[in-house]
């Protein structure tokens, strides 16, 4: 007697959607307004469609001294000008999104906010992909930094990072005042993620403008905690917890700095970086991340093939 094997699905919740980027028609200058998130299941669990296809963001910065030499050496002089770099990334590496780190703000005593504003404007001028901007990490300059980012990107529907517990007001303010969205990062813990989302909501940031970053440890350096945190956040959201029902972004930012990669045989270092990012990113999308970030340009092609193979070329699955 032939039997039927079912997939058991008992979810009730849905993941919210967040839009990044605004086209000319919408008051911005991006080539597209990308929607991330959505869906009502785990990727490939639950029998229904796997949800929206995850996107690849390429990370770059405005002060290459604070970036991995593996990348800066490969990219060449272009890294000294954020606008040039942005243009090159878009033309050559072709990610889905750009994630721009204002690493210049991390220099001690940074105060040059007018330059900062020009830098963001330049990156916007030289690129067309929806943009994620990472501001300062120092509370002392948060207020001015995020005001710059918010203003310079007005109308562009940026995704701004990064809000943390105890350091979220300026990012939230920039998002609310200038129509952007916020990355909310908590240290690998489902309850802390929820708490931060509640704080943001109370400040006035609506749910459809929050992207959860559960913090992604590099492979071998706590990645397993992040992997499970992502699964648990998604799980809680599907069970109906609206304070966790936002799309997630994952970036194992330390991947290129860890010993295994940094101290790899020089002939293999580039490949080591790519594999480290690839294994992490593939695992993150299967754990529920909607955006995965990479820093090595050569990670993009194999990662895209994997995502295409999982979600289909056109994505969406449905």
């Amino acid at each position: 007697m032939p039997m039927k094997v079912d997939i058991i699905s008992e979810w009730t919740g849905e993941i919210g959607e967040v839009t990044i980027g605004a086209t000319k028609k919408e008051g911005g200058s991006r080539c597209a307004a990308i929607v991330i998130g959505g869906g009502s299941g785990f990727p490939f669990l639950g029998g229904s469609a796997p949800g929206r296809k995850p996107l690849i963001a390429f990370e770059f910065c405005d002060d290459p001294k604070l970036w991995s030499p593996i990348v800066t050496e490969l990219e060449g002089d272009v890294v000294n000008d954020a606008g040039d770099w942005a243009a090159r990334v878009e033309e050559l590496h072709r990610p889905d999104l750009l994630r721009f780190y204002l690493t210049s703000t991390r220099r001690r005593g940074f105060q040059d906010f007018s330059q900062l504003r020009r830098t963001v404007e330049e990156v916007l001028e030289r690129s067309t992909l929806p943009l994620i901007v990472e501001g300062s990490i120092d509370p002392a300059i948060d207020s001015e930094t995020f005001l710059c980012c918010g203003e310079a990107g007005e109308g562009e529907r940026l995704l701004l990072g990064t809000a943390e517990e105890g350091r979220y007001r300026s990012v939230a303010a920039a998002a609310m005042a200038y129509g952007h969205s916020v990355i909310a990062q908590s240290p690998i813990d489902v309850n802390l993620a929820k708490q931060l989302n509640i704080l943001l909501r109370e400040t006035g940031v609506p749910h459809d403008r929050i992207v959860i970053d559960p913090y992604t440890g590099a492979l071998g350096y706590g990645f397993e905690y992040s992997y499970s945190a992502m699964e648990r956040i998604r799980f809680a959201a599907l069970k109906g917890d609206e304070d966790l029902a936002m799309p997630m972004i994952s970036s194992a930012i330390d991947s290129l700095n860890i010993k295994e990669v940094r101290e790899a045989d020089p002939g293999q270092r580039g490949e080591m970086a790519v594999k480290w990012e690839l294994y992490t990113a593939v695992s993150s999308v299967i754990a529920g991340a909607s955006v995965v970030c990479v820093r090595h340009p050569e990670t993009i092609v194999p990662l895209r093939s994997a995502i295409d193979s999982l979600w289909g070329k056109t994505g969406g699955g449905d």
């Binding site: 492979l219 071998g220 990645f223 397993e224 295994e260 045989d265 080591m272 594999k275 690839l278 294994y279």
Partner: peptide, 13 residues
């Protein structure tokens, strides 16, 4: 070697 190392590390994690 890079694939192997990443794979073994992921598995350990």
């Amino acid at each position: 070697i890079p694939s192997r190392n990443a794979l073994l590390t992921l598995r350990q994690n």
